[in-house]
């Protein structure tokens, strides 16, 4: 351990919800996208799932809202170091979308992509079984554009770069393909509890 002379840090919090190396951002919700925030109206938003599925399909705003509503209330963790507790998102479980397209048994991974072209890769097992959502509400209000509105992916058990903003689609694959940050030195999976920030962690 390389102790830094004179460094004490902020008061320690005993918070079992805080993964290693993270701090509580409290009311802040930093925005860290690398591209211009797109001007995307709900009427122009679409969400497609294709690749290794029996019935590839595209939903529009109204079609997606016909699926059963589902909410996530809990914590989110950003690779830059902040975590945010008790965040409330409303939308639809990704399971409801995947049930409709019938993934092939050979599908093992997905690439989630945005209307801006941003991409993130995820094991299929990380976005099924009630662990991922397509959301359009935050705290009961429409999700702001800078946070990914009109609709984004939320995969809260992984670092938040996986939760693609301005979600446009999922491509199901039988192998893993790095997305934008994963191709920029970040960890392929990004589990905050194992502090998988960068490749090799």
């Amino acid at each position: 351990m390389n102790i830094t002379r004179g460094f004490t840090g902020r008061p320690r919090v005993d918070n079992p919800g805080l993964p290693p190396g993270q701090y509580d951002a409290r009311d802040d919700w930093p925005v860290l996208s690398a591209e211009v925030t797109p001007d995307l109206a709900p009427a122009d938003w679409t969400f497609r799932i294709d690749g290794l599925v029996a019935r590839p399909r595209t939903w529009d705003w109204d079609g997606a809202h016909e699926l059963p509503a589902s909410a996530y209330e809990g914590d989110i963790h950003c690779v830059t170091g902040w975590s945010k507790f008790g965040v409330r998102f409303g939308g639809v479980s990704l399971d409801a979308f995947l049930d409709a397209v019938q993934p092939h048994d050979s599908a093992t991974h997905v690439v989630a992509y945005a209307h801006t072209g941003y991409t993130a890769n995820l094991p299929l097992a990380d976005v099924t079984g009630g662990r991922a959502w397509v959301v359009w509400d935050h705290d009961g209000r429409p999700l702001p554009a800078e946070h990914g509105g009109p609709a984004r992916l939320v995969v809260p058990h992984l670092y938040f770069w996986k939760s693609v903003k301005w979600l446009a689609g999922l491509r199901l694959l039988d192998h893993d393909e790095p997305g934008f940050w994963e191709g920029n030195g970040y960890h392929p999976r990004g589990n905050p509890w194992e502090e998988q920030r960068y490749f090799g962690d």
């Binding site: 992509y113 945005a114 801006t116 072209g117 991409t119 446009a168 491509r171 393909e177 934008f180």
Partner: peptide, 14 residues
């Protein structure tokens, strides 16, 4: 086995 490319080219590739 081609590399997946999203329909929109990403604004800021590495």
């Amino acid at each position: 086995r081609e590399r997946f490319a999203p329909p929109t080219r990403f604004a800021v590739p590495g």
